[in-house]
Nucleic acid binder design. Structure first.
Lengths: 219, 219
DNA sequence: AATCTAAATTCTGTATACAGAATACGTTGT
DNA sequence: ACAACGTATTCTGTATACAGAATTTAGATT
Protein backbone atom coordinates (compact mmCIF):
# COMPACT_ATOMS: atom_id res chain seq x y z
CA UNK A 1 0.00 0.00 0.00
CA UNK A 2 1.36 3.38 -0.96
CA UNK A 3 -1.66 5.55 -0.28
CA UNK A 4 -2.44 6.02 -3.97
CA UNK A 5 -5.21 4.28 -5.82
CA UNK A 6 -2.87 2.51 -8.19
CA UNK A 7 -4.24 0.98 -11.35
CA UNK A 8 -3.47 -2.40 -12.85
CA UNK A 9 -5.47 -4.30 -15.44
CA UNK A 10 -5.85 -3.50 -19.12
CA UNK A 11 -4.98 -0.06 -20.42
CA UNK A 12 -4.89 2.86 -18.04
CA UNK A 13 -7.31 4.70 -20.23
CA UNK A 14 -10.06 2.10 -19.98
CA UNK A 15 -9.60 1.65 -16.27
CA UNK A 16 -9.69 5.39 -15.73
CA UNK A 17 -12.88 5.79 -17.72
CA UNK A 18 -14.62 3.17 -15.59
CA UNK A 19 -13.36 4.55 -12.33
CA UNK A 20 -14.12 8.15 -13.14
CA UNK A 21 -17.56 7.29 -14.44
CA UNK A 22 -18.38 5.57 -11.16
CA UNK A 23 -17.04 8.49 -9.20
CA UNK A 24 -19.18 10.90 -11.19
CA UNK A 25 -22.33 8.78 -11.08
CA UNK A 26 -21.99 8.27 -7.36
CA UNK A 27 -21.45 11.96 -6.76
CA UNK A 28 -17.86 11.51 -5.63
CA UNK A 29 -16.97 14.18 -8.12
CA UNK A 30 -19.53 16.90 -7.57
CA UNK A 31 -21.56 18.18 -10.54
CA UNK A 32 -20.21 21.49 -11.73
CA UNK A 33 -16.87 21.13 -10.02
CA UNK A 34 -13.72 21.83 -11.98
CA UNK A 35 -11.49 18.86 -12.67
CA UNK A 36 -7.92 19.32 -11.51
CA UNK A 37 -5.89 17.13 -13.82
CA UNK A 38 -2.84 17.13 -11.63
CA UNK A 39 -4.53 16.06 -8.43
CA UNK A 40 -6.38 13.27 -10.25
CA UNK A 41 -3.09 12.16 -11.79
CA UNK A 42 -1.60 11.91 -8.33
CA UNK A 43 -4.68 10.18 -6.95
CA UNK A 44 -4.41 7.42 -9.54
CA UNK A 45 -0.65 7.51 -9.85
CA UNK A 46 -0.95 8.09 -13.57
CA UNK A 47 0.37 10.66 -16.00
CA UNK A 48 -1.69 13.28 -17.74
CA UNK A 49 -1.82 11.53 -21.10
CA UNK A 50 -4.17 8.66 -20.23
CA UNK A 51 -6.14 10.85 -17.85
CA UNK A 52 -6.85 13.40 -20.53
CA UNK A 53 -7.89 10.69 -22.96
CA UNK A 54 -10.28 9.35 -20.33
CA UNK A 55 -11.78 12.80 -19.81
CA UNK A 56 -12.38 13.02 -23.55
CA UNK A 57 -14.21 9.71 -23.54
CA UNK A 58 -16.38 10.81 -20.64
CA UNK A 59 -17.08 14.07 -22.42
CA UNK A 60 -18.39 11.94 -25.29
CA UNK A 61 -20.79 10.34 -22.82
CA UNK A 62 -21.88 13.74 -21.59
CA UNK A 63 -20.60 13.27 -18.04
CA UNK A 64 -17.83 15.80 -18.45
CA UNK A 65 -17.75 19.18 -20.12
CA UNK A 66 -14.59 20.27 -21.92
CA UNK A 67 -14.07 23.96 -22.57
CA UNK A 68 -11.06 24.65 -24.78
CA UNK A 69 -8.14 26.21 -22.90
CA UNK A 70 -10.04 26.25 -19.65
CA UNK A 71 -10.18 22.64 -18.75
CA UNK A 72 -12.68 20.01 -17.77
CA UNK A 73 -15.62 20.18 -15.38
CA UNK A 74 -18.10 17.60 -14.16
CA UNK A 75 -21.36 18.09 -16.04
CA UNK A 76 -24.21 19.53 -14.02
CA UNK A 77 -27.45 17.63 -13.54
CA UNK A 78 -29.91 20.26 -14.62
CA UNK A 79 -33.61 19.91 -15.04
CA UNK A 80 -33.12 20.76 -18.69
CA UNK A 81 -30.65 17.90 -19.12
CA UNK A 82 -33.05 15.45 -17.54
CA UNK A 83 -35.94 16.71 -19.60
CA UNK A 84 -33.86 16.23 -22.70
CA UNK A 85 -32.54 12.83 -21.74
CA UNK A 86 -35.71 11.16 -20.54
CA UNK A 87 -37.76 11.29 -23.73
CA UNK A 88 -34.79 9.82 -25.54
CA UNK A 89 -34.44 7.13 -22.92
CA UNK A 90 -38.16 6.47 -23.31
CA UNK A 91 -37.96 6.21 -27.08
CA UNK A 92 -34.95 3.91 -26.97
CA UNK A 93 -36.35 1.67 -24.24
CA UNK A 94 -39.59 1.48 -26.19
CA UNK A 95 -37.64 0.47 -29.27
CA UNK A 96 -35.78 -2.16 -27.31
CA UNK A 97 -39.10 -3.49 -26.04
CA UNK A 98 -40.57 -3.64 -29.50
CA UNK A 99 -37.55 -5.46 -30.85
CA UNK A 100 -37.63 -7.83 -27.89
CA UNK A 101 -41.29 -8.67 -28.50
CA UNK A 102 -40.46 -9.85 -31.99
CA UNK A 103 -37.73 -12.15 -30.83
CA UNK A 104 -38.50 -13.34 -27.32
CA UNK A 105 -38.67 -17.09 -26.69
CA UNK A 106 -40.94 -18.89 -24.26
CA UNK A 107 -38.00 -19.63 -22.02
CA UNK A 108 -37.13 -15.96 -21.86
CA UNK A 109 -40.72 -15.09 -21.01
CA UNK A 110 -40.47 -17.53 -18.13
CA UNK A 111 -37.37 -15.79 -16.96
CA UNK A 112 -39.12 -12.43 -17.15
CA UNK A 113 -41.96 -13.85 -15.04
CA UNK A 114 -39.50 -15.05 -12.43
CA UNK A 115 -37.82 -11.65 -12.29
CA UNK A 116 -41.16 -9.91 -11.96
CA UNK A 117 -42.01 -12.19 -9.01
CA UNK A 118 -38.76 -11.23 -7.36
CA UNK A 119 -39.48 -7.59 -8.03
CA UNK A 120 -42.82 -7.83 -6.23
CA UNK A 121 -41.23 -9.71 -3.35
CA UNK A 122 -38.56 -7.05 -2.95
CA UNK A 123 -41.25 -4.39 -2.93
CA UNK A 124 -43.23 -6.26 -0.25
CA UNK A 125 -40.09 -6.59 1.84
CA UNK A 126 -39.32 -2.92 1.24
CA UNK A 127 -35.87 -3.95 0.06
CA UNK A 128 -34.94 -1.06 -2.20
CA UNK A 129 -31.46 -2.36 -2.87
CA UNK A 130 -32.74 -5.74 -4.08
CA UNK A 131 -35.53 -4.07 -5.99
CA UNK A 132 -33.12 -1.87 -7.90
CA UNK A 133 -30.91 -4.81 -8.75
CA UNK A 134 -33.82 -6.87 -10.06
CA UNK A 135 -35.20 -3.88 -11.90
CA UNK A 136 -31.87 -3.43 -13.66
CA UNK A 137 -31.84 -7.12 -14.48
CA UNK A 138 -35.24 -6.92 -16.14
CA UNK A 139 -34.12 -4.06 -18.31
CA UNK A 140 -30.96 -5.96 -19.15
CA UNK A 141 -33.02 -8.97 -20.13
CA UNK A 142 -35.08 -6.87 -22.51
CA UNK A 143 -31.92 -5.37 -23.98
CA UNK A 144 -30.29 -8.71 -24.50
CA UNK A 145 -33.39 -10.16 -26.18
CA UNK A 146 -33.61 -7.10 -28.40
CA UNK A 147 -30.14 -8.06 -29.55
CA UNK A 148 -28.98 -4.67 -30.77
CA UNK A 149 -25.53 -3.84 -29.39
CA UNK A 150 -25.56 -0.33 -30.83
CA UNK A 151 -28.80 0.39 -29.03
CA UNK A 152 -27.42 -1.14 -25.85
CA UNK A 153 -24.37 1.09 -25.98
CA UNK A 154 -26.39 4.25 -26.47
CA UNK A 155 -28.77 3.33 -23.68
CA UNK A 156 -25.94 2.62 -21.33
CA UNK A 157 -24.37 5.97 -21.98
CA UNK A 158 -27.66 7.81 -21.46
CA UNK A 159 -28.42 5.77 -18.40
CA UNK A 160 -25.16 6.81 -16.78
CA UNK A 161 -26.21 10.42 -16.98
CA UNK A 162 -29.58 9.72 -15.46
CA UNK A 163 -28.47 7.28 -12.77
CA UNK A 164 -26.50 10.11 -11.29
CA UNK A 165 -29.72 11.98 -10.58
CA UNK A 166 -31.46 8.87 -9.28
CA UNK A 167 -28.55 8.38 -6.94
CA UNK A 168 -29.49 11.58 -5.17
CA UNK A 169 -33.03 10.67 -4.18
CA UNK A 170 -34.95 7.57 -3.15
CA UNK A 171 -38.26 6.67 -4.66
CA UNK A 172 -41.35 7.80 -2.80
CA UNK A 173 -43.64 5.03 -1.54
CA UNK A 174 -46.35 6.00 -3.97
CA UNK A 175 -43.99 6.07 -6.91
CA UNK A 176 -42.62 2.69 -5.93
CA UNK A 177 -46.04 1.08 -5.91
CA UNK A 178 -46.82 2.63 -9.27
CA UNK A 179 -43.54 1.39 -10.70
CA UNK A 180 -44.35 -2.15 -9.64
CA UNK A 181 -47.74 -1.89 -11.29
CA UNK A 182 -46.12 -0.63 -14.48
CA UNK A 183 -43.78 -3.58 -14.41
CA UNK A 184 -46.80 -5.90 -14.25
CA UNK A 185 -47.97 -4.31 -17.46
CA UNK A 186 -44.55 -4.65 -19.01
CA UNK A 187 -44.58 -8.35 -18.28
CA UNK A 188 -48.11 -8.73 -19.62
CA UNK A 189 -47.18 -7.02 -22.88
CA UNK A 190 -44.12 -9.23 -23.21
CA UNK A 191 -46.20 -12.36 -22.62
CA UNK A 192 -48.57 -11.27 -25.37
CA UNK A 193 -45.65 -10.23 -27.54
CA UNK A 194 -47.56 -7.00 -28.07
CA UNK A 195 -44.93 -4.58 -29.42
CA UNK A 196 -47.07 -1.50 -29.53
CA UNK A 197 -48.35 -1.93 -26.01
CA UNK A 198 -44.92 -2.71 -24.59
CA UNK A 199 -43.46 0.32 -26.31
CA UNK A 200 -46.19 2.54 -24.92
CA UNK A 201 -45.87 1.15 -21.40
CA UNK A 202 -42.12 1.57 -21.36
CA UNK A 203 -42.41 5.12 -22.60
CA UNK A 204 -44.89 5.88 -19.85
CA UNK A 205 -42.74 4.12 -17.29
CA UNK A 206 -39.81 6.32 -18.14
CA UNK A 207 -41.89 9.48 -18.29
CA UNK A 208 -43.23 8.78 -14.82
CA UNK A 209 -39.74 8.24 -13.55
CA UNK A 210 -38.74 11.68 -14.79
CA UNK A 211 -41.74 13.34 -13.19
CA UNK A 212 -41.06 11.71 -9.84
CA UNK A 213 -37.40 12.53 -10.04
CA UNK A 214 -37.88 16.19 -10.85
CA UNK A 215 -40.42 16.52 -8.07
CA UNK A 216 -38.04 15.06 -5.51
CA UNK A 217 -35.05 17.00 -6.73
CA UNK A 218 -37.12 20.18 -6.65
CA UNK A 219 -35.53 21.44 -9.81
CA UNK B 1 2.68 25.68 -48.87
CA UNK B 2 4.80 22.93 -47.45
CA UNK B 3 3.04 19.89 -48.87
CA UNK B 4 1.39 19.01 -45.58
CA UNK B 5 -2.23 19.63 -44.72
CA UNK B 6 -1.38 21.96 -41.89
CA UNK B 7 -4.00 22.80 -39.31
CA UNK B 8 -4.86 26.15 -37.85
CA UNK B 9 -8.03 27.16 -36.00
CA UNK B 10 -9.13 26.10 -32.54
CA UNK B 11 -7.55 23.11 -30.87
CA UNK B 12 -5.83 20.52 -32.98
CA UNK B 13 -7.99 17.86 -31.45
CA UNK B 14 -11.28 19.39 -32.59
CA UNK B 15 -9.98 20.16 -36.02
CA UNK B 16 -8.66 16.63 -36.38
CA UNK B 17 -11.96 15.10 -35.33
CA UNK B 18 -13.80 17.07 -37.98
CA UNK B 19 -11.29 16.35 -40.71
CA UNK B 20 -11.00 12.68 -39.94
CA UNK B 21 -14.75 12.29 -39.70
CA UNK B 22 -15.15 13.78 -43.13
CA UNK B 23 -12.42 11.56 -44.51
CA UNK B 24 -14.11 8.49 -43.06
CA UNK B 25 -17.61 9.44 -44.13
CA UNK B 26 -16.45 10.21 -47.64
CA UNK B 27 -14.57 6.95 -47.88
CA UNK B 28 -11.19 8.62 -48.01
CA UNK B 29 -10.17 6.27 -45.23
CA UNK B 30 -11.40 2.89 -46.32
CA UNK B 31 -13.62 0.87 -43.99
CA UNK B 32 -11.65 -1.87 -42.31
CA UNK B 33 -8.28 -0.33 -43.04
CA UNK B 34 -5.74 0.00 -40.28
CA UNK B 35 -4.92 3.50 -39.16
CA UNK B 36 -1.24 4.32 -39.24
CA UNK B 37 -0.78 6.95 -36.57
CA UNK B 38 2.57 8.08 -37.83
CA UNK B 39 1.57 8.67 -41.41
CA UNK B 40 -1.52 10.58 -40.32
CA UNK B 41 0.64 12.65 -38.01
CA UNK B 42 2.85 13.56 -40.92
CA UNK B 43 -0.11 14.20 -43.16
CA UNK B 44 -1.52 16.78 -40.76
CA UNK B 45 1.83 17.93 -39.41
CA UNK B 46 0.70 17.12 -35.91
CA UNK B 47 2.06 15.02 -33.08
CA UNK B 48 0.61 11.79 -31.85
CA UNK B 49 -1.01 13.23 -28.75
CA UNK B 50 -3.86 15.18 -30.37
CA UNK B 51 -4.23 12.57 -33.10
CA UNK B 52 -4.76 9.81 -30.60
CA UNK B 53 -7.27 11.90 -28.68
CA UNK B 54 -9.15 12.49 -31.92
CA UNK B 55 -9.20 8.77 -32.66
CA UNK B 56 -10.71 8.17 -29.24
CA UNK B 57 -13.46 10.68 -29.92
CA UNK B 58 -14.24 9.04 -33.23
CA UNK B 59 -14.28 5.66 -31.56
CA UNK B 60 -16.95 7.09 -29.28
CA UNK B 61 -18.96 7.93 -32.38
CA UNK B 62 -18.48 4.41 -33.70
CA UNK B 63 -16.50 5.45 -36.77
CA UNK B 64 -13.26 3.97 -35.50
CA UNK B 65 -12.52 0.72 -33.70
CA UNK B 66 -9.81 0.69 -31.06
CA UNK B 67 -8.27 -2.63 -30.10
CA UNK B 68 -5.92 -2.39 -27.12
CA UNK B 69 -2.27 -2.79 -28.07
CA UNK B 70 -3.05 -3.31 -31.72
CA UNK B 71 -4.13 0.07 -32.81
CA UNK B 72 -7.00 1.76 -34.54
CA UNK B 73 -8.96 0.72 -37.60
CA UNK B 74 -11.71 2.40 -39.59
CA UNK B 75 -15.02 0.75 -38.65
CA UNK B 76 -16.56 -1.44 -41.33
CA UNK B 77 -19.98 -0.68 -42.76
CA UNK B 78 -21.66 -4.02 -42.26
CA UNK B 79 -25.23 -4.91 -42.93
CA UNK B 80 -25.56 -5.72 -39.26
CA UNK B 81 -24.39 -2.25 -38.28
CA UNK B 82 -26.90 -0.64 -40.59
CA UNK B 83 -29.68 -2.88 -39.36
CA UNK B 84 -28.83 -1.89 -35.83
CA UNK B 85 -28.46 1.80 -36.53
CA UNK B 86 -31.54 2.41 -38.66
CA UNK B 87 -34.25 1.47 -36.17
CA UNK B 88 -32.54 3.74 -33.66
CA UNK B 89 -32.37 6.52 -36.20
CA UNK B 90 -36.05 5.91 -36.91
CA UNK B 91 -37.01 6.05 -33.25
CA UNK B 92 -35.01 9.21 -32.65
CA UNK B 93 -36.24 11.02 -35.74
CA UNK B 94 -39.77 10.03 -34.79
CA UNK B 95 -39.21 11.47 -31.34
CA UNK B 96 -37.82 14.65 -32.83
CA UNK B 97 -40.90 14.88 -35.04
CA UNK B 98 -43.26 14.39 -32.13
CA UNK B 99 -41.51 17.03 -30.08
CA UNK B 100 -41.51 19.37 -33.05
CA UNK B 101 -45.25 18.95 -33.51
CA UNK B 102 -45.88 20.17 -30.01
CA UNK B 103 -43.83 23.29 -30.46
CA UNK B 104 -43.93 24.33 -34.08
CA UNK B 105 -45.10 27.84 -34.92
CA UNK B 106 -47.05 28.92 -37.97
CA UNK B 107 -44.00 30.68 -39.33
CA UNK B 108 -41.99 27.51 -39.08
CA UNK B 109 -44.69 25.56 -40.84
CA UNK B 110 -44.45 28.08 -43.65
CA UNK B 111 -40.73 27.51 -43.81
CA UNK B 112 -41.30 23.75 -43.97
CA UNK B 113 -43.71 24.27 -46.85
CA UNK B 114 -41.15 26.33 -48.72
CA UNK B 115 -38.50 23.69 -48.22
CA UNK B 116 -40.87 20.98 -49.39
CA UNK B 117 -41.53 22.98 -52.56
CA UNK B 118 -37.82 23.23 -53.20
CA UNK B 119 -37.49 19.50 -52.59
CA UNK B 120 -40.07 18.75 -55.25
CA UNK B 121 -38.43 21.18 -57.66
CA UNK B 122 -35.03 19.53 -57.18
CA UNK B 123 -36.61 16.15 -57.81
CA UNK B 124 -38.25 17.41 -61.02
CA UNK B 125 -34.93 18.83 -62.15
CA UNK B 126 -33.21 15.60 -61.20
CA UNK B 127 -30.76 17.63 -59.16
CA UNK B 128 -29.63 15.08 -56.59
CA UNK B 129 -27.10 17.42 -55.02
CA UNK B 130 -29.67 20.13 -54.39
CA UNK B 131 -32.20 17.57 -53.27
CA UNK B 132 -29.86 16.19 -50.65
CA UNK B 133 -29.04 19.63 -49.35
CA UNK B 134 -32.71 20.57 -49.02
CA UNK B 135 -33.51 17.21 -47.50
CA UNK B 136 -30.86 17.77 -44.86
CA UNK B 137 -32.26 21.23 -44.24
CA UNK B 138 -35.73 19.86 -43.59
CA UNK B 139 -34.41 17.40 -41.05
CA UNK B 140 -32.41 20.19 -39.46
CA UNK B 141 -35.53 22.32 -39.24
CA UNK B 142 -37.38 19.56 -37.44
CA UNK B 143 -34.45 19.07 -35.09
CA UNK B 144 -34.21 22.75 -34.27
CA UNK B 145 -37.94 23.04 -33.60
CA UNK B 146 -37.77 19.95 -31.40
CA UNK B 147 -35.28 21.94 -29.36
CA UNK B 148 -33.47 19.04 -27.71
CA UNK B 149 -29.69 19.44 -28.05
CA UNK B 150 -28.99 16.05 -26.51
CA UNK B 151 -31.18 14.40 -29.10
CA UNK B 152 -29.53 16.46 -31.81
CA UNK B 153 -26.10 15.33 -30.75
CA UNK B 154 -27.03 11.67 -30.70
CA UNK B 155 -28.69 11.90 -34.08
CA UNK B 156 -25.68 13.61 -35.57
CA UNK B 157 -23.38 10.91 -34.36
CA UNK B 158 -25.61 8.12 -35.68
CA UNK B 159 -26.10 9.96 -38.93
CA UNK B 160 -22.37 10.10 -39.52
CA UNK B 161 -22.20 6.35 -39.46
CA UNK B 162 -25.06 6.01 -41.89
CA UNK B 163 -24.08 8.79 -44.25
CA UNK B 164 -20.97 6.82 -45.01
CA UNK B 165 -23.08 4.05 -46.50
CA UNK B 166 -25.28 6.49 -48.37
CA UNK B 167 -22.18 8.01 -49.84
CA UNK B 168 -21.48 4.77 -51.64
CA UNK B 169 -24.70 4.55 -53.62
CA UNK B 170 -27.13 6.90 -55.30
CA UNK B 171 -30.84 6.59 -54.80
CA UNK B 172 -32.73 4.61 -57.40
CA UNK B 173 -35.33 6.55 -59.39
CA UNK B 174 -38.16 4.63 -57.75
CA UNK B 175 -36.83 5.20 -54.26
CA UNK B 176 -36.40 8.87 -54.99
CA UNK B 177 -40.01 9.30 -56.04
CA UNK B 178 -41.16 7.41 -52.97
CA UNK B 179 -39.00 9.57 -50.73
CA UNK B 180 -40.57 12.72 -52.16
CA UNK B 181 -44.02 11.29 -51.52
CA UNK B 182 -43.04 10.47 -47.94
CA UNK B 183 -41.89 14.03 -47.49
CA UNK B 184 -45.30 15.24 -48.59
CA UNK B 185 -46.75 13.20 -45.77
CA UNK B 186 -44.21 14.55 -43.34
CA UNK B 187 -45.24 18.09 -44.23
CA UNK B 188 -48.92 17.23 -43.95
CA UNK B 189 -48.45 15.75 -40.48
CA UNK B 190 -46.49 18.82 -39.43
CA UNK B 191 -49.23 21.13 -40.72
CA UNK B 192 -51.79 19.20 -38.69
CA UNK B 193 -49.42 19.06 -35.72
CA UNK B 194 -50.25 15.36 -35.62
CA UNK B 195 -47.46 13.87 -33.48
CA UNK B 196 -48.43 10.24 -33.82
CA UNK B 197 -48.74 10.42 -37.58
CA UNK B 198 -45.49 12.34 -38.01
CA UNK B 199 -43.68 9.85 -35.82
CA UNK B 200 -45.04 6.95 -37.81
CA UNK B 201 -44.20 8.53 -41.16
CA UNK B 202 -40.65 9.37 -40.11
CA UNK B 203 -40.11 5.84 -38.85
CA UNK B 204 -41.34 4.45 -42.14
CA UNK B 205 -39.25 6.96 -44.08
CA UNK B 206 -36.12 5.77 -42.32
CA UNK B 207 -37.01 2.10 -42.62
CA UNK B 208 -37.48 2.49 -46.36
CA UNK B 209 -34.14 4.21 -46.62
CA UNK B 210 -32.48 1.23 -44.98
CA UNK B 211 -34.20 -1.25 -47.28
CA UNK B 212 -33.18 0.67 -50.38
CA UNK B 213 -29.66 1.08 -49.11
CA UNK B 214 -29.15 -2.58 -48.31
CA UNK B 215 -30.55 -3.57 -51.66
CA UNK B 216 -28.17 -1.29 -53.51
CA UNK B 217 -25.18 -2.22 -51.44
CA UNK B 218 -25.99 -5.89 -51.92
CA UNK B 219 -25.04 -6.70 -48.35
C1' DA C 1 -11.60 51.08 0.15
C1' DA C 2 -12.11 49.91 -4.48
C1' DT C 3 -10.39 49.37 -9.06
C1' DC C 4 -7.08 48.79 -12.39
C1' DT C 5 -2.69 46.95 -13.94
C1' DA C 6 1.32 44.05 -14.15
C1' DA C 7 4.06 40.28 -12.53
C1' DA C 8 3.96 35.60 -11.11
C1' DT C 9 1.94 31.27 -10.97
C1' DT C 10 -0.88 27.63 -12.56
C1' DC C 11 -2.86 25.02 -16.07
C1' DT C 12 -3.77 23.53 -20.80
C1' DG C 13 -2.41 21.92 -25.33
C1' DT C 14 1.14 19.89 -27.84
C1' DA C 15 5.55 17.67 -28.77
C1' DT C 16 8.90 14.41 -27.73
C1' DA C 17 11.08 10.39 -25.30
C1' DC C 18 11.10 5.75 -23.90
C1' DA C 19 9.81 0.89 -22.57
C1' DG C 20 7.47 -3.06 -23.71
C1' DA C 21 4.20 -5.44 -26.77
C1' DA C 22 3.13 -6.86 -31.42
C1' DT C 23 4.55 -7.80 -35.92
C1' DA C 24 7.67 -8.66 -39.75
C1' DC C 25 11.63 -10.87 -41.25
C1' DG C 26 15.19 -13.98 -41.83
C1' DT C 27 17.47 -18.10 -40.45
C1' DT C 28 17.88 -22.77 -39.41
C1' DG C 29 16.53 -27.48 -39.41
C1' DT C 30 13.90 -31.12 -41.47
C1' DA D 1 9.94 -26.33 -49.91
C1' DC D 2 8.15 -25.54 -45.62
C1' DA D 3 7.69 -25.06 -40.68
C1' DA D 4 9.50 -23.42 -36.34
C1' DC D 5 12.14 -20.46 -34.00
C1' DG D 6 14.66 -16.26 -32.82
C1' DT D 7 15.93 -11.69 -33.94
C1' DA D 8 15.01 -7.01 -35.66
C1' DT D 9 11.83 -3.57 -36.52
C1' DT D 10 7.63 -1.17 -35.92
C1' DC D 11 4.01 0.46 -33.20
C1' DT D 12 1.37 1.30 -29.04
C1' DG D 13 0.81 3.05 -24.37
C1' DT D 14 2.63 6.03 -21.07
C1' DA D 15 5.61 9.55 -19.09
C1' DT D 16 7.77 13.80 -19.35
C1' DA D 17 9.07 18.43 -21.27
C1' DC D 18 7.89 22.87 -22.84
C1' DA D 19 5.47 27.04 -24.69
C1' DG D 20 1.74 29.92 -24.42
C1' DA D 21 -2.92 30.95 -22.48
C1' DA D 22 -5.60 31.72 -18.33
C1' DT D 23 -5.87 32.80 -13.70
C1' DT D 24 -4.33 34.52 -9.51
C1' DT D 25 -1.76 37.71 -6.70
C1' DA D 26 0.36 41.92 -5.44
C1' DG D 27 0.99 46.51 -6.01
C1' DA D 28 -0.11 51.08 -7.67
C1' DT D 29 -3.49 54.67 -8.40
C1' DT D 30 -7.60 57.25 -7.58
Amino acid sequence: MDGTDHIGRGTLHDELVDRLRDMIVEGDLAPGSKVNEQSLCERFAVSRTPLREALRSLAGEGLVVLRPRRGAAIAEVTRQDLEEAFPILGALEALAGELACQKITDAEIDRARALQARLVAHHRAEDLQGYSATNAEIHRLIMSVANNPTLARMLKSLDGRVRRARYLVNMSGARWAAAVAEHEEILAALEDRDSARLGAVLKLHIANKLASLCEQLEI
